[in-house]
């Protein structure tokens, strides 16, 4: 599929997500609609329980909406079965998690090559691509290291390499800086921005890291399952800037 910058890659139409936890019905998302253009770096922000992770899961095809449509690159995700979704994710989405979630028994190279197992590429090609991806994230000297011997920032970069190795249209990151110190967090955010700038990737990220505001093209604010707009969104963004400033005054953590 072609990802011309500016055209909406992701269309979210009146999406609600409810699930049952115990006896309660939780309204994680309520009638959210938004478009994300191809080639943008987008942040979903909001407090815990605001529904930002749920939205991310819907965009990446990990979860399905209770109501409404999620259309990514022209594919209506609602129409796909569990297994079709899995195949779709393998082709079109790269995932990055807060806790890196590398497979501990595989080396950095094998971790990155993991998604390529689902393609028809031969072994040599899989290795070549994995090494290229690791070079992109600056870890060409860590190919044979196992996750437990890498620092947090390095692990997250391996995870990013794993996310880009299939050359997906969409990279989805869930709190990618949540478990990192300030220096590493900035480096990771910078890396994600470079992916957008140099490779034209669409990057969608959930975060409550105020630093992220400096890197993203657009920030969407959610609260209690609802997408904030206009005045409210501006106020939420301002609140984050202020808290970031306050945090900055206390110095790096």
């Amino acid at each position: 599929m072609d990802a011309t910058p500016g055209a909406p890659l992701i269309q979210i139409r009146d999406v609600s997500r409810r699930y049952v936890r115990g006896v309660d019905e939780v309204h994680a998302l309520e009638r959210v609609s938004l478009d994300i253009p191809a080639g943008h770096f987008v942040g979903f922000m909001g407090p815990s329980g605001s529904g930002k992770s749920t939205l991310l899961n819907l965009v990446s095809g990990i979860d399905r909406p209770s109501e409404g449509d999620v259309i990514v690159a022209g594919q209506r995700l609602n129409d796909l079965s569990e297994d079709e979704l899995a195949r779709w994710r393998a082709r079109h989405v790269g995932l990055i998690f807060q806790f890196f979630n590398l497979i501990p028994v595989l080396s950095a190279r094998d971790n990155v090559a993991l998604p390529l197992l689902l393609t028809k590429l031969d072994k040599a090609e899989r290795v070549r691509r994995a090494e290229t991806a690791l070079r992109v994230v600056g870890l060409e000297d860590r190919l044979d290291h196992y996750p437990r011997t890498l620092s947090g920032g390095e692990q997250q970069r391996v995870a990013i390499a794993r996310a880009i190795v299939t050359d997906p249209d969409l990279i989805v990151a869930d709190e990618p800086t949540g478990d990192l110190d300030a220096r590493n967090a900035e480096a990771i955010l910078d890396l994600l921005r470079q992916l957008r700038q140099h490779f034209g990737k669409t990057v969608v990220m959930v975060t409550h890291d105020p630093r992220a505001l400096r890197f993203v093209d657009d920030a969407y604010h959610l609260d209690k399952g609802v997408l904030l707009e206009g005045e409210e969104a501006a106020r939420a963004q301002e609140a984050i800037r202020v808290s970031a400033g306050a945090a900055g005054a206390r110095g790096p953590r």
Partner: peptide, 16 residues
């Protein structure tokens, strides 16, 4: 369980 979920998220099908 967590690791398996990651594999699934990456796109490994149930059968695989």
């Amino acid at each position: 369980a967590g690791e398996l979920a990651i594999l699934k998220a990456i796109g490994f099908g149930r059968r695989l």
